[in-house]
Design a binder for these strands. Sequence first.
DNA 1: TGAAATGTTGGGGCG
DNA 2: ACGCCCCAACATTTC
Length: 494
Amino acid sequence: MPKDNKDETAGPSIVWFRNDLRLADNPALSAAADGPCLAIYILDDETPRLRRMGSASRWWLHHSLASLGKDLKAKGGELLILRGAAEEIVLGLAAAANASSVHWNRRYDEAERGQDERIKARLKAAGLQAVSHNAHLLYEPWEVVGKSGGPLKVFSPFWRAAQAKGPPPPPLPAPGKIVAARVPSGLASGPLPLDALGLRPTKPNWAAEMETCWTPGEAGAQEALVDFLDARARGYGERRNRPDIEGTSRLSPHLRFGEIGPRQVWSAARHSVESGDGSASETDIDKFLSEIGWREFSHHLLFQFPALATKNFQPRFDAFPWREDPEALEAWTRGRTGFPIVDAGMRQLWRTGWMHNRVRMIVASFLVKHLLIDWRRGEEWFWDTLVDACPANNAASWQWVAGSGADAAPYFRVFAPVLQGEKFDPNGDYVRSYVPELAGIPATYIHKPWESPHPIRARAGITLGETYPFPIIKHESGRERALAAFQSLSPESA
DNA sequence: TGAAATGTTGGGGCG
DNA sequence: ACGCCCCAACATTTC
């Protein structure tokens, strides 16, 4: 960045916040905050082909923007909230403010990249600097390549190649002080109060419980990371699979909105091992960082294959005989499949905007294999209901489970909901907290209430088919039907 | 980052 | 004492 020869008479810089709602380790902000700057966020529901953010994400976004606004103000800056087609807004603002440069951190979704390219070209044509930075990933997708120079389609070689590039650069500090430039008047669409975006639910306030279990914003993200590394990272390799305990970092929505960046996570995690004051072992931390690796891999795949959310990565899956079954889909989304671990997961998602990763695999496998419903229906539901819904992770993970993805789970891997429940929620505590009608069933039967002796159900106040559903499909027959359906596809080589 | 079926082994009960 | 069966417990393969 031309720092030294900055023309003092030139106009302000603009920093355009997107998926990077933080002050620290934010290269675009640091570059723009060199002098007077305008910090903006644009809610763009208008540009064609841009995927409209889901409901749960919008709730999160509201609070994250509120937090960012406060944090900027504390440094002397100001966050301008805008709404509309970003291309016209950025160009219009840059002209009205007589800006000298516009900075942003890169996005990796195809439509978003296209938008950024168009804006960059127009800004440059207008004689401005338009500079993109990396805040979202440890390594740019195009930097990690195989020996032959091609994209890597299997996780392990990908992650090896990425790590072989050496440690990522250390995170940047937050700017010490920010000078807010004067907001030009007479903009076609001027700054709005945050509430005017209407990001929060109104009619039924379905976000009530979400308010109690999340702290959106940079401070909440840092707190989550520190809590995790200090107290919960020990034994991560095992504990991460247990939905009944707080064994994961719960950083996903913070990473999604860039309230914390992967370089900060990487640096803090490595430091906690090397300094010896973290509780976790080298193995635990490597396992944790490999989850960051999966996030990188998802973005790598999305970059190589932009249609990741809508098209099978393996074309042979185009012939898959998916079923239309609105009733089964509804039972799945509402957590009424009759399989307690599946229903608990779907209700955790609905109530908290998040689901434990192990349970995500179980419910996804159930939708795609037992119900034979297209993975895209699941992807769409998750997109709307997850606070961490991300174009890369959500699509890559669904394709992974369906078997249609890169380095995907083999088609014959069908999760058995009862066994998974018994293995990873052994006392049934997770089920009890999200399927309260089963609370009175003892651990022996909590994952298969239909097998419990009648007196036990009576004592627990359960009448199957009334207070809790019968399984909507028998596991064994669902499994066989799924295997037959997958068998009908042409082999991988074709 | 499965599950189920099938195969193998080895200890103990028992005729 | 010996072989036989049963069946965990583990290992392998098949889907």
